[in-house]
Design a protein around this nucleic acid. Structure first.
Length: 813
RNA sequence: GGCCAGGUGGCGAAAUGGCAGACGCGUAGGUCUCAAAAACCUAUGUUUCGAAAGAAACUUGAGGGUUCAACUCCCUCCCUGGCCACCA
């Protein structure tokens, strides 16, 4: 007996990859009449390790959706690019001396081979890289627009500083107060940094969310990060001095309970205090890293300033303390302390023996000398003179009114969001396009001179002074002032990684434009991004910076006024853990390399498994056995269809089995609905179910119907579907066909199962003709006649009968 | 501490008010084979009764509630994961 041809992915994959590329099958067409759909995944960082299985997972899910949308008549844009600036490339350069541009180009080439092999239906004509001068020219241009509008400024601020490496460190690089590289104790250093005023857009960034369809958790994360809180600013007079101290509080109604004040060590008043103890404390605090200062476990420290303030409502003198638990970056950098109703204030009061006055009535027994009373949101004021007895909401209103009348305070809003520190003292980033002239001061590089290209350097190590390595290249730094023509120097700070990734989605729409970041008409056609798929780790910073940048460009008219928000829907993709249930990492040795998998089982099996593993947003554990289960599924489909082809040669097209045909149409419906809801796992399950029935029914599927099944499988297993589509004698390409329609009449089952319950418990199942699904009386009669039901109904009185057509009948006795 | 997402067989998971456990993995038995692998077939939530066919009860983190009916809705609590965190 001759054996049927076996499935061999190694033969079909290269063949179709080539055909697809030649046919340019997935090009997105500007201004096409079909409805557009812009589907975007976060562009990858091309590291030396190339794409990992996490990338293949989220890219495949996005690709399935894109392919499905295309088959449903949409003009789909699915682009890719490379977020190629950043520290790993720079660190590699420091180690090896090889220019990051060289390694980047190499890594991109590798990743590209992988992305193509994975059969992503990308429009490669729109490929971009943030490190290309033609791209970062516009990243720099956006900076200049901020600068023009006064949103980008150079400000002196403290950074984490390693005195041994002589380098500024990001918060992540500080481990337990020490430098990650050398272990030296990290101190604070004040340097001038570029800062972008994202806080000006705090309200807009919150309001804009209502125009999006982000999943709830993303909206919540953004709102939390912006952290708007309404409250009041109150001025406290200092005894024996002219100056006053402003505090921010969300609870002006507790003013009677404010028994002391605390200033942050950075507060301006502190500088004016001439007291050794204070100086010593402040010096020590300023040296501490952010991490140390915000360590919750540590005991409160502090020092008395020697000054007294006056509580404006009680007229009493209260001491002013200094402590590093008060943040200089939030509110006014000073607080009024109400120890009776705040954890931190209470701890501080206890430690330094300060008075505690309760001002909110406790609803349970409470000893205010032992613990603070914190459930104050719906409380009632006490010990507060004219505010006594008022519920908190009323008391706040009354307090604000009083403060405003006396002109010592007013209603204000405070945000958690801080301005965006835009300077990096590193090499591998976009140079900030500013020139420093000794005569004219800060001068922006004229737009016509952009891009300011990153020069080649010999040494990528930051300098002794903490400046970026660019500072060491005299030939580049020395320039002429564009205003006066005199000698000047270039800014040597570079931009953060976020700068290039802020606006990349705009560049995809018009990647070769040399007049503007994006053409307005093209942007009007394609925007907003319909679906943006990314990781949870980017739900705050990246998404917020990106929305801010877009809103700013919108204000300036550089993006279409029809689209005030860039992204319509945001979805977060899940995470794949190693087979040990741990995060994949080289040191654990649990990394799954997609190349190895598709070499063994083929891309189609890998894609199918990735989609089948679990919900798209979930956390999933890699299972090699389950992977092989999907490989079996792919091979089974191959066997069935190839068998079919051979059968056909003898038998010609049959009409096929009606049951199987019904199952097929039900599957077409289910798979389509599931993909639209991003429920890829159940879509794959439905196809498996169909294949099981197919196998049982002995291949009695008409040729045309076999083709329909391949069409719904195509988004998941593009190679297999294309190959078998051809073998069935169809024209290239299955991926350019329309999604098959299902027969609304055919999908109805002839028989339905009606569940018979007694008091809600399942007692019997009846199989009835679907035509009779509404026939309540008949079904009730049938049910009562059943032996098993009778047992439970015997000598009981039926109080009620619940009937759900086609589903159940429930006797309540 | 705050916010968010979860908790269902041996495992990954389905079901969003109407047959809990679809689909896949694993396991056991079988077919094929000299043998093995592959492939295919059958069984597979737990407990109890029964020689068996079969029958009964229990079962979605715990407890309560709403409902004829709850994995699903409401309340209280426990646990796990993620993000943020001395934010006044």
């Amino acid at each position: 007996m001759e054996t049927a041809e076996k499935y061999n992915h190694r033969l079909i994959e290269p063949k179709w990859q080539k055909r697809w590329e030649e046919a340019n099958l997935y090009r997105a067409i500007d201004f096409d009449k079909r409805p557009k759909k812009y589907i975007l995944f976060e562009f990858p960082y091309p590291s030396g390790e190339r794409l990992h299985v996490g990338h293949t997972f989220s890219f495949t899910g996005t690709d399935v959706l894109a392919r499905f949308s295309r088959m449903n008549g949409f003009n789909v844009l699915l682009p890719i690019g490379w977020d190629a600036f950043g520290l790993p490339a720079e660190n590699y350069a420091i180690k090896t001396g090889i220019n990051p541009m060289i390694t980047t180009v190499k890594n991109i080439a590798n990743s590209k081979i992988q992305a193509k092999h994975l059969a992503l239906s990308l429009d490669w004509e729109r490929e971009i890289s943030t490190t290309e001068p033609a791209y970062y020219r516009w990243t720099q241009w956006i900076f200049l627009q901020w600068y023009k509008k006064g949103l980008a400024k150079k400000v002196e601020m403290p950074i984490n500083w390693c005195p041994r490496c002589k380098i500024g460190l990001a918060n992540e690089e500080v481990v337990a107060g020490s430098c990650e590289r050398c272990g030296a104790e990290v101190t604070r250093k004040r340097i001038k940094q570029w800062v972008v005023k994202i806080t000006d857009y705090a309200d807009r960034l919150m309001e804009g969310l209502s125009r999006t369809d982000f999943i709830e958790k993303v909206k919540a994360a953004q709102i939390n990060w912006i952290g708007k809180s309404e409250g009041a600013e109150i001025e406290f007079a200092i005894k024996g001095r002219e100056s006053k101290i402003k505090v921010f509080t969300t609870r002006p109604d507790t003013l009677y309970g404010a028994t002391f004040m605390v200033l942050s060590p950075e507060h301006e008043i502190v500088d004016q205090i001439n007291n050794d103890e204070v100086k010593h404390y402040v010096e020590k605090s300023l040296k501490k890293s952010d991490l140390e200062r915000t360590d919750l476990a540590k005991e409160k420290t502090g020092v008395f300033s020697g000054l007294m303030a006056v509580n404006p409502v009680t007229g009493k003198e209260i001491p002013i303390w200094i402590s590093d638990f008060v943040l200089s970056t939030y509110g006014t950098g000073a607080i009024m302390s109400v120890p009776a109703h705040d954890d931190r204030d209470f701890a501080f009061a206890k430690k330094f023996g300060l008075p505690i006055v309760p001002v909110i009535a406790a609803k349970k027994e409470w000893d205010f000398t032992k613990a603070p009373y914190l459930e104050t949101e719906k409380g009632t004021s006490i010990n507060s003179e004219e505010w006594n007895g008022l519920p908190t909401g009323e008391a706040i209103k009354k307090a604000v009114q009083w403060l405003e009348e006396k002109k010592i305070g007013q209603k204000t809003v405070s945000y958690h969001l801080r301005d965006w520190i835009f300077s990096r003292q590193h090499y591998w980033g976009e140079p900030i396009p500013i020139i420093l002239c000794s005569k004219c001061g800060e001068v922006p590089v004229p737009e016509s001179d952009l891009p300011v290209e990153l020069p080649k350097v010999e040494n990528y190590q930051p300098t002794e002074t903490g400046e970026s390595p660019l500072a060491g290249i005299e030939g580049w730094v020395k320039t002429v002032c564009p205003q006066c023509g005199g000698p000047a120097r270039r800014e040597t700070d570079t931009m953060p990684n976020w700068a290039g990734s802020d606006w990349y989605f705009l560049r995809y729409l018009d990647p070769r434009n040399s007049k503007a970041p994006v053409d307005l008409k093209k942007a009007k056609y394609w925007l907003p991004v319909d679906i943006y798929v990314g990781g949870d780790e980017h739900n705050t910073l990246h998404l917020l910076y990106s929305r801010f940048t877009y809103q700013f460009l919108w204000d300036q008219g550089f993006v279409p006024k029809e689209h005030p928000e860039p992204y319509y829907k945001r979805l977060s993709h899940g995470v794949i853990l190693g087979s040990d249930g741990q995060r994949m990492s080289k040191s654990r040795g649990n990394v799954i390399n997609p190349d190895v998998i598709w070499e063994a089982f083929g891309v189609d099996a890998l894609r199918t498994y990735l989609m089948f593993m679990g919900p798209f947003e979930g956390t999933m554990t890699w299972s090699q056995e389950s992977m092989e289960g999907c490989y079996r599924f792919i091979k089974r489909v191959w066997g069935l269809v190839i068998g079919k082809c051979e059968l056909e040669a003898e038998k010609k097209a049959g009409s096929g089995n009606l049951n199987l045909k019904r199952k097929l149409h039900q599957t077409i419906k289910k798979v389509g609905e599931d993909i639209a809801r991003m429920k890829f796992n159940t879509a794959v399950a439905a196809m498996m179910e169909f294949v099981n029935v197919w196998q049982e029914e002995n291949s009695e599927l008409a040729k045309e119907d076999t083709g329909k099944f391949l069409q719904i499988l195509a988004p998941f297993a593009p190679y297999l579907a294309e190959e078998l589509w051809e073998r069935l004698g169809n024209n290239f390409s299955i991926h350019a066909t329309n999604w098959p329609e299902y027969d609304k009449v055919l999908i109805r089952e002839e028989m339905v199962t009606v569940v018979v319950q007694v008091n809600g418990k399942l007692r019997e199942k009846l199989t009835i003709d679907n035509e009779k699904r509404e026939a309540k009386d008949e079904i009730e009669k049938l049910a009562k006649e059943s032996e098993r039901v009778r047992k439970y109904l015997a000598d009981k009185k039926i109080r009620k009968v619940i009937f759900v057509p086609g589903r159940l009948i429930n006797f309540v006795v």
